[in-house]
């Protein structure tokens, strides 16, 4: 697989789904793909097929009727996958927070890796978000590709756990300090 991964690294395909947004972020995603901002220079291609995609761009607070589709699309994207939440309402519900037919943000349903702020999120911010997603995606790819040793495995899990614990302790300290 390492033979192909070199090329795949330069071709993160995106899948875009509107889960109830106002269209603003969606046209900004189109604008980011167009020649002025040219997200395609990074090899990003807007594919309509979840099975060929790597990065999932979601806009909008999740409306009741789009919940199932959102999860289904997420499940159909092959691992490793990265989810980018574009726009303020995707992160928290934004102006739609608390309306009767929306869930407040997509992280109630699927794990999110990158949040892109803004109402509507500008193309520059979307490019930043996608590039951040590519980094996370590479890391996830490496984690998957690392050979898993049966007997050395326990040590590796312990290592990962201790690393996470130290991070959490640091977080705690940071939170207490101010």
């Amino acid at each position: 697989m390492s033979f192909w991964s070199k090329w795949r690294k330069r071709a993160p395909w995106i899948l875009h789904y509107n889960a109830g947004s106002c269209n603003g972020c969606d046209i900004e995603i189109l604008a980011a793909l167009s020649p002025r901002y040219d997200l395609e220079r990074f090899g990003v291609l807007n594919s309509g097929n979840p099975k060929q995609s790597d990065i999932f761009l979601v806009t909008g607070p999740v409306t009741y009727r789009s919940r199932e589709r959102l999860i289904e699309l997420y499940m159909q994207i092959p691992e490793p996958k990265v989810v980018v939440a574009v726009g303020a309402c995707t992160a928290t519900g934004g102006v739609f927070r608390g309306m009767y037919n929306v869930e407040d943000g997509i992280d109630r349903y699927i794990p999110v890796d990158v949040y892109v702020p803004g109402c509507a999120a500008g193309p520059q911010l979307i490019i930043d978000g996608v590039m951040e997603a590519v980094k996370i995606w590479e890391r996830k790819t490496q984690e998957i590709e690392e050979p898993f040793k049966l007997f050395g495995g326990m040590g590796k899990i312990g290592e990962a756990l201790s690393r996470r614990n130290t991070l959490e302790v640091k977080d705690e300290q940071n939170r207490r300090e101010p």
Partner: peptide
């Protein structure tokens, strides 16, 4: 057509 129904009309008249 109801995939994007959020309930703006109700929110405009109550919240």
């Amino acid at each position: 057509v109801g995939f994007v129904h959020r309930g703006v009309e109700e929110a405009c008249a109550s919240r």
